[in-house]
Simulated scan of single mutants.
Amino acid sequence: MSEVREHLAYSEEHEWAEAVEGQIVRIGITDYAQSLLGDIVFVEFPEPGTSVSAGESMGSIESVKTVSELYSPVTGKVLKVNGLLLDQPELVNGEPYEGGWIVEVEVEGSVEEAFGKLLSAEKYKAIIG
């Protein structure tokens, strides 16, 4: 069974979002998503300074099986990317909620408002069964 962490917010596209500090949100893909994708071999993410919009593509994740779009769960500006994934994309498989995070975004408006449009852990669990 896939791990779903209670303190995170989730998108229907299987991304998670975590409030880091102030208006900064860390984003990655869920344990469920990485297990469906299989061995991840490449992560394409936006450059710092890029504006992203909730529900829109901000990159892609390539596995041995397929290429999948990476959707932003929030609207804002990319502050930081996880550069470790350039050489170690498998971190997304092994540590989807720790070392495998993908980007940090400064959200437009408040984090509470942005998270209000996302799924709770309970609702996400219901979607993935």
Rank of each mutant, 00 (worst) to 15 (best):
M1Q: 11
E6G: 10
L8M: 15
A9I: 05
Y10D: 08
E15M: 03
W16V: 04
W16R: 06
Q23S: 14
I24H: 11
V25N: 09
R26E: 11
L37S: 14
D39M: 10
I40R: 09
V41C: 03
E44N: 11
E44M: 09
P48R: 01
S51L: 09
S53M: 04
S57T: 13
S57N: 07
I61S: 02
I61M: 03
V67S: 07
L70P: 07
P73Y: 02
G76L: 00
V78F: 13
L79P: 08
L79T: 12
N82D: 07
G83Y: 09
L84M: 12
L86P: 12
L86T: 15
L86S: 15
D87A: 14
D87R: 15
V92P: 06
V92E: 08
N93I: 06
G94K: 15
P96G: 04
Y97S: 04
Y97H: 10
G99D: 12
G100A: 10
I102A: 05
V103S: 02
E106T: 10
V107H: 00
E108T: 09
G109N: 07
S110Y: 08
S110H: 05
E112D: 14
A114N: 10
A114R: 09
A114V: 11
F115T: 01
F115Y: 04
G116V: 00
L119W: 02
L119D: 02
A121T: 09
Y124D: 12
I128D: 07
